[in-house]
């Protein structure tokens, strides 16, 4: 899996450590092991692995996390450009 890495320094994930209460929900929901919890605070340990799915931000009870969530799909982004709306996967059900 180590060779399946995507672009660096591009994701919009932000963690506000002040607000964090260390509940650990972000580390549970993240499918790419971006977070660990140390000394009752979340830490971002693998930022470039983030796919901006939005699971961590949505499940953070104190809104310490923010990310511009969406789908990492070229067809969806083209649809977004063409229709002027937010990218969505309504590309005939192929995703």
């Amino acid at each position: 899996m180590s060779s399946l890495r995507y672009l660096e320094n591009i994701v919009t994930l932000k963690l506000d450590t002040e607000k964090c209460v260390g509940c650990g929900m972000c580390a549970v929901v993240c499918p790419h092991g971006v977070f660990t919890i140390e000394e009752r605070k979340a830490q971002v340990v693998d930022r470039d692995a983030c796919i901006e799915c939005g699971a961590c931000a949505g499940n953070c009870p104190v809104e310490a996390l923010s990310v511009k969530a969406g789908v990492g799909c070229a067809s969806a982004i083209i649809n977004g450009w063409l229709t002027g709306e937010e990218p969505s996967c309504d590309c005939g059900g192929s995703c």
Binding site: L7, V11, P31, H32, I51, K68, V71, G72, C91, S94
Partner: peptide, 19 residues
């Protein structure tokens, strides 16, 4: 480039930049 949608490790910001 269109296979990004089937993959499990691409972020929308990344895909947009690449495109």
């Amino acid at each position: 480039m269109h296979f990004t949608g089937s993959s499990t490790f691409t972020s929308p910001s990344g895909v947009e930049k690449e495109m």
